[in-house]
Design a protein around this nucleic acid. Structure first.
Length: 266
DNA sequence: AACCAGGTGGAGC
DNA sequence: GCTCCACATGGT
């Protein structure tokens, strides 16, 4: 047991690097606050600072921050790759979040051909427009409420050409069956399921599997990863993806986050 | 004014 | 299968 919960506050015996965890590109709903971070997920909120997490649902955030996994063990394994030693030095505090599936799918559909500050603003507007008021913040919209928005309403939120994707996909996801099947499916089958959703291609599918279902055997290839990992030999995203999946195996997704984070911070 | 941003879908071959 | 290209939007 490397953490404990006291009066609803989660305290870890190991240091947490919330800066790395939150800014490594896996999550969009957070903000700096009082020397720490406010983090929003679904209809929940926590304040994270130092080695403590304050919330009204400790169990939810123990799972969210994946506190039961041993990242020292992961890092030890990945450190055997020379090219990962620097990225791990820079982003060693990263943990892969276990985020809400629906929220992750919609968020990464929005991320396509977009930049992080704008993605964050769009999601925030979306929450304010059709999420549920939870005191001083709004929940992420349910699939029902999101699927009821018109294309022009979505456009007003700033989603641009992704309006149709969001509308169609949220309509598909109003039935629970899809997400249930997705959770139960092995990674390969889950990928194929995700690819049937409008607005979800290979990269978004990998992000959903990694950041929503903690499938570490995924390797999302975006522009940053491609710039850093591509070369004359690996000259398509597909090739980069399969090369690194093969190389890092069941921990590929975590390796990807170390690389992404260090690529963005140099 | 072009070009880019955590890409995808569709057309054409 | 593959390679181009358009696609809103806001920022340099």
């Amino acid at each position: 047991m490397k953490y404990f919960v006291q009066n609803g506050v989660i305290k870890t015996e190991f240091p947490l690097d919330f800066e790395a965890i939150l800014t490594c590109g896996q999550v969009f709903r957070y903000e700096r606050y009082d020397g720490g971070y406010n983090v929003y997920s679904k209809d929940k909120k926590c304040f994270a600072k130092g080695n403590e997490i304050f919330s009204d649902d400790a169990n939810y955030f123990v799972n969210y921050f994946d506190l039961n996994s041993d990242y020292d063990e992961y890092k030890k394994e990945l450190s055997e790759f020379d090219e990962l030693k620097d990225p791990i030095r820079v982003g060693g505090g990263i943990r892969i979040l276990r985020q809400d599936l629906f929220e992750t799918i919609i968020s990464f559909i929005i991320s396509a051909n977009n930049n992080i500050p704008r993605i964050k603003r769009i999601i925030e507007r979306m929450c304010e427009y059709c999420g549920v008021c939870c005191g001083d913040f709004y929940s992420f919209p349910s699939s029902d409420s999101l699927s009821r928005l018109s294309l022009s309403e979505l456009r007003k939120l700033g989603v641009g050409f992704r309006d149709v994707y969001i509308q169609k996909t949220s309509r598909i996801l109003t039935s629970d069956n899809f997400l249930k099947e997705l959770e139960a499916a092995p990674t390969k089958e889950a990928t194929n399921l995700l690819l049937t959703l409008p607005g979800v291609g290979p990269k978004v599918a990998d992000c959903v599997l990694l950041f929503g279902l903690s499938r570490l055997d995924c390797f999302p290839v975006d522009t940053w990863i491609y710039k850093r990992c591509g070369n004359d030999e690996l000259n398509t995203s597909q090739k980069v993806r399969s090369y690194y999946l093969n190389r890092y195996g069941s921990l590929a997704g975590l390796a990807q986050q170390y690389i992404f984070y260090s690529a963005r911070n140099d």
